[in-house]
Design a protein around this nucleic acid. Structure first.
Length: 929
RNA sequence: GCAGGAGUCGCCAAGCUUGGUAAAGGCGCUGGACUCAGAAUCCAGUCUCAGAGGAGUUCGGGGGUUCAAAUCCCCCCUCCUGCACCA
């Protein structure tokens, strides 16, 4: 027998698959298509365990589907625009494009080393001009349809670095490079009207098979709420502020208005007034605040009166206008009506600034008063102080008041969404340029389609200050496509979520220079699309998955394809964790530098091991490269798939990997070590192994259809251990070989290399990768076989537990006693009864109706008591006394071998011992001597 | 703050959808076989008690529903994840 050498055989089969080009797929309307996609990676430079897990899950499922006869589309590409490349340029003077290309080639070779069965001919790179050409095309189409527009919005800004900061660069309100305070700065930016699709995005969730938690997150993110718009005229001006509220029933209780400090009207109002200085101070303070903190219910509410008044459209009263940090410009109108009596935050604000409080809702069963209130009353009640609406239940008043406002043309019912339009402008170089030119005469002008793509220029400087694109004269200065006079290009690039919003369609028909009019051919995408199974991290539950859904709907409306939803089924994989030193006293994990210490540096407490997410800062990462190098790709895949269910967290453990390796290499001897006893006469073991085999095929198939990969593998492991036992005893060669063959088919999706090698070594000439998934034979999976299998194992377990209690006594003989016939009759009456009731009295009464049971009354009562106590342990009996005896005769040899002693089988009446009386159907009496 | 998820033997992890033997499987540990010895492999044990297959205790904590709860309902605690977020 040769030795298992993973490195050698993995290379061999990877080369062979590549040479024969077996994973390349073409459109074929005669075959059932299936599209499996993993979220394409950002090429950060190295594969990490999360990637390995993602791809291993996807590849196993792909191989399973392929063996089931599907025409499987399984592509790979790279989300290659993004900040790390630009940071490398700033920090190390790297060229972003070269840096990215180099990373891609490293990652690709690592991916290839784990045997993933991609159709590599369909690769996509976001930074490929042939690809981002169509980002720009989509943008222009949206501009034409009025789905793209420009608006002011604020960004994180570091004044020292003169640059915009991403949220992750502005953590804790400090700039990551220079540690100075982050401010909020207004910039004019491009937005996409995702809100136009809000309702459809909500409804579409009912048509996809996604984890319920992801759907819930998206519903909350879209945040549809029904309410009213109420128009408050502004004193001394013609305009109104149209605020949104879900509580128009409290309109009579409005005692002031609150604007967001960054609302543009506010600055105009205070300009040149006594409020100006205080406003500027407050404004600057608020602009430095963390946005989460601002809306925290517990956070300090800061505000001021700004000398302005609005008019309550219903009462015509003038109410003062305040500004406060807890009102945010982006939501609704950027201003709210304040009802201190019935809103806790308004209440706190009013108390702090001595603003009047007016109760307009009284609880149904008691009375509240302004003097005694310690918090706002937010629950339901009856309207008071509300003129004609007094006495009305507030829930009803919501509609009635809105209708009246509508008649007065001072408001209307409306639907509001938390979902905000998608700001796509980024002040960065390494992204897709927005194809727009600004002309002094013609204004904002689209780049003509025939001039696409607008290429990223190469003559840029990476200084860490400002947008590098602004340093490229050749890029900025251009001609206006309309009038031909000098114009300036937009220097903002697109959010990289744009790239990932349609790449799944591009894989169906990858972009080529010769495509001129559309990004892909409709009939090709309609064949392959949509994605049948999408696999990726839970961290994308909201943003990426909602943007991609939005793009899908926009593209459908552009008649590019027929799909409403991009991803039919979704699997969100769990994270990878690893045990790491942890100090229970400080409640902190050791950092990278301390990870080899025994005690905590801060308090001296002894570290304990605790599981935590793998990350660079803890230094507890394990590189896939290392693991594959040491144990081989198959063992690495096996560990990852068996360690935890795909959607759960997976704990990395070195022992786990070495088990995986042992299991995989153990297959080698199971298949190739031909030392075994052969026989030609069938016995009960053949029957049982056949039953096991078909049962396993059935369970593995069912589990794989659900992508319950771990459960599938678990079944296989148990079958392998049964097959080992079968082999050690004695085999019918033909049957053993067929078990081997089936086993390779079942294992192949998970560990493709070794199975392919063993397939060849056991005499097959075709490629296992292209073999057909086995069907199971229902004839073997009978209830009777199920019952026999359990009967045998339960009996052996019982013997074991008796032997254990007996401690060291030597065993000479095991007597198995089959129960008297009347007990079988009893069970056939009794077991069906337990499905109706578990009440012993009722059951006894029912049984005693049978005359031939009466004489055993006392015994029956005892039996039934015991069985009911442990009802799950007994199943419907399927054998009568005679066939049960026969079965025990059949397995006698097995028991004999197991316990190395004599085994005798008796009928209850043949033996006169009290222990014999314990015999029950499906539970023979046992006497050990 | 809002939203989502998780807590089951020493460790990892099934079971929860559909209430009915809790702990499958792996790791680790203990004993045995084989070895000069170790490694590997195989066998047995691994919540507690037990000289007969039994009894008892247990699924983060506390209540409740039920003949029966890890599973269903309510409250609380701890941990993790995401965020453009109250109107």
């Amino acid at each position: 027998m040769s030795e298992y050498n993973p490195r050698e055989i993995e290379k061999k089969w990877q080369d062979r698959w590549k040479k024969e080009n077996i994973f390349k797929v073409e459109m074929d309307t005669k075959k059932e298509k299936y599209y499996i996609l993993e979220m394409y990676p950002y090429p950060s430079g190295k594969l990490h365990m999360g990637h390995l897990r993602n791809y291993t899950i996807g590849d196993s499922f792909t191989r399973f589907k392929r063996m089931n006869g599907c025409n499987v589309l399984y592509p790979m590409g790279y989300d290659s625009f993004g900040m790390p490349a630009e940071n490398a340029a700033i920090d190390e003077g790297a060229n972003p494009e070269e840096w990215t290309d180099r990373n891609i080639s490293i990652m690709k070779s690592q991916q290839k080393s784990i045997g993933l069965s991609y159709d590599w001919s369909r690769e996509i790179y976001s930074h490929d001009p042939n690809y981002y050409h169509w980002d720009q095309w989509f943008f222009l189409k949206m501009l034409e349809k009025g789905l793209a527009y420009r608006q002011e919005s604020y960004v994180n800004w570091c004044d020292k670095c003169v640059t915009v900061l991403a949220n992750e660069q502005a953590q804790g309100g400090k700039c990551w490079r220079c540690n100075s305070d982050v401010e909020q700065k207004f910039l004019t930016q491009w937005f996409l009207k995702i809100r136009d699709y809000a309702d459809e995005l909500l409804d579409g969730l009912d048509t996809v098979e996604w984890p319920e938690k992801v759907k819930i997150m998206q519903r909350n993110w879209i945040g549809r709420s029904e309410g009213s718009i109420i128009r408050f005229p502004i004193v001394g001006e013609d305009r109104t502020i149209d605020i949104f509220t879900t509580r128009p029933d409290t309109l009579y209780g409005v005692t002031f208005m609150i604007f967001a400090p960054e609302h543009p009207w506010v600055r105009d109002w205070v300009k040149g007034t006594e409020y100006e200085n205080e406003f500027e101070e407050l404004y600057n303070e608020v602009m430095k605040e963390d946005k989460f903190k601002r809306t925290d219910l517990e956070a300090e509410k800061k505000g001021m009166f700004i000398g302005k008044y609005c008019i309550n459209p219903m009462t015509k009263e003038e109410v003062p206008v305040y500004i406060s940090n807890f009102v945010i410009y982006e939501y609704g109108a950027g201003a709210v009506m304040a009802v201190p009596a019935h809103d806790q935050r308004d209440f706190e604000f009013a108390k702090k600034y001595n603003i009047p409080i007016k109760i307009v809702i009284q609880p149904f069963d008691y009375e509240i008063s302004v003097d005694k209130m310690t918090r706002a009353y937010e629950a339901d009640g009856v309207l008071v102080n509300s003129e004609e609406f007094n006495g009305m239940a507030n829930r009803n008043a919501i509609n009635v008041i809105t209708e009246k406002l509508d008649k007065m043309r001072m408001g209307n019912a409306t639907v509001n969404y938390k979902l905000r339009d998608w700001g796509i402008s980024r002040q960065r170089y390494w992204g897709c340029p927005i194809p727009v030119i600004y002309c002094n005469d013609c204004g904002t002008v689209s780049v003509p389609y025939e001039d696409l793509p607008v290429l990223l220029p190469k003559d840029v400087k990476f200084t860490g200050k400002g947008n590098p694109l602004e340093t490229s004269e050749s890029f900025i200065n251009t001609k206006c496509p309309k009038c031909g006079k000098p114009g300036k290009r937009e220097t903002d690039t697109m959010d990289t979520f744009i790239d990932s919003s349609w790449y799944f369609f591009a894989f169906c028909d990858p972009p080529r220079p010769e495509f001129e009019v559309f990004p892909y051919r409709k009939e090709v995408v309609n064949y392959w699309g949509n994605v049948d199974q999408y696999i990726g991290g839970i961290e994308h539950a909201v943003m990426h998955l909602i943007y991609a859904r939005f793009f899908t709907k926009v593209a459908r409306d552009l008649d590019l394809h027929k799909f409403d939803e991009p991803f039919q089924r979704l699997l969100t994989q769990g994270m990878i964790n690893k045990a790491h030193p942890y100090c229970p006293k400080c409640d902190a994990f050791a950092m990278r530098a301390e990870m080899n210490d025994e005690t905590c540096k801060r308090c001296g407490t002894k570290y304990v091991l605790k599981s935590v997410k793998m990350s660079k800062s803890y230094g507890n990462t394990v590189s896939p490269e290392e693991v594959v190098g040491k144990y081989g790709a198959d063992a690495a895949r096996f560990f990852i798939l068996f360690g935890a269910s795909p959607e759960k967290g997976l704990e990395w453990s070195d022992q786990g990997v070495s088990f995986a390796f042992k299991f995989v290499s153990g297959l080698w001897s199971l298949f190739l070590d031909s030392d075994m006893k052969k026989r030609s006469e069938r016995n009960v073991n053949d029957e049982l192994i056949e039953y096991q085999l078909h049962k396993t095929i059935q369970l593995v198939t069912e589990n794989m259809n659900k992508i319950a990969i771990r459960d599938a593998i678990n079944e296989i492991i148990q079958f392998v251990s049964n097959l080992r036992v079968y082999k050690i005893n004695s085999v019918i060669e033909e049957l053993f070989k067929s078990c081997q063959e089936y086993l390779l088919l079942l294992l192949h999706p998970f560990i493709p290399h070794i199975t392919e090698e063993l397939w060849e070594k056991t005499g097959h000439e075709n490629l296992l990768s292209l073999a057909k998934w086995p069907d199971y034979n229902k004839d073997f999976i009978t209830e009777e076989n199920d019952y026999k299998w359990k009967l045998m194992n339960n009996t052996i377990d019982d013997i074991k537990s008796i032997v254990q209690v007996l401690k060291e006594k030597e065993i000479n003989t095991i007597k198995l006693i089959i129960a008297d016939e009347w007990k079988y009759d009893l069970f056939s009456i009794f077991m069906p009864l337990t499905e109706k009731t578990k009440n012993q009295g009722e059951i006894m009464k029912e049984i005693m109706k049978n005359d031939n049971m009466k004489k055993y009354g006392k015994e029956i009562s005892k039996i039934i008591g015991n069985v009911l106590k442990n009802i799950g342990g007994y199943s419907k009996t399927l054998l009568d006394a005679k066939s049960e005896k026969q079965f025990f005769e059949d397995i006698k040899a097995n028991v004999k071998q197991k316990f190395e002693c004599e085994v005798e089988i008796f009928l209850e009446k043949e033996i006169d011992e009290s222990k014999a009386k314990q015999a029950l159907p499906g539970k023979p009496g046992i006497i050990i001597q």
